[in-house]
Amino acid sequence: MSNLITRAKDSIYQVLRGLKTVAVHSLRIPTTKEYPDTMPPLPPHFRGRLALNVNPETNEHLCISCRQCERVCPDKCIEITAHKSPETNKLELIDFKIDHGLCMFCGLCTEVCPTDCIINTNDFEMADYSREALVYDIRKLTLTQGESSHYFAAKEIALPKPKPTKPAVTVTPATSTVKPAEAKTESKPAEVKTESKPEEAKTESKPAEVKTESKPAEAKTESKPEEAKTESKPEEAKTESKPEEVKTEAKLEETDIKSTDNDIK
């Protein structure tokens, strides 16, 4: 009987102790992170959406089409289209596609990249309405100069040496000219981009002309001169990206690009 009473007493004490511990918790500050309102503080090495760097200083595209990332990817979600430039005999990047619906964000591609071109950004909000929209092409992947310099600084990557060879520069207009159109669709802080836009416009004008001369085959597809609304530079970007890319672009919902694409057809 006394055993019963002591046991009952002990049980009640233990229950009250538990209740007290729980009740005291109500005086502590909640640990909830109210995510959409406040973004979580992500470490620089967080493995988020994949992106391609440009040289933070010169705005050159860093990809050299070595296909290391394509080869190492365990999911085979990277697809690089490149061709050998006839006059320089060097690889030229035409398109770079990553299927983020397939990617498992292991970050192996970023480890093997010799030029630190492909990186994991801190962006993780990639929800979309269709699987096709998760296939990012080079326009969506390439970062602006400002973003690149941010990631170079955050990840403590050594800045790349400026490329000495000229022909490599010819790749850049393809990617950089599209950026103004893309800047509107992206919800990233806009200040950086608006600054960089006019600069790009200036720097591009020369190489763009050089290239159209070098590729006579493309000149015929581009023969319509009445694209008056957009300047001649964005127009060039399309002609470079070849028929196969036009198809995928039509799926993407970027209105600016779409309207111009229709003109080509």
Partner: peptide, 12 residues
């Protein structure tokens, strides 16, 4: 873990 490995569960 996220800070050193990059992800919270799939560390690699």
């Amino acid at each position: 873990f996220e800070e050193i490995a990059g992800q919270r569960m799939m560390f690699n």
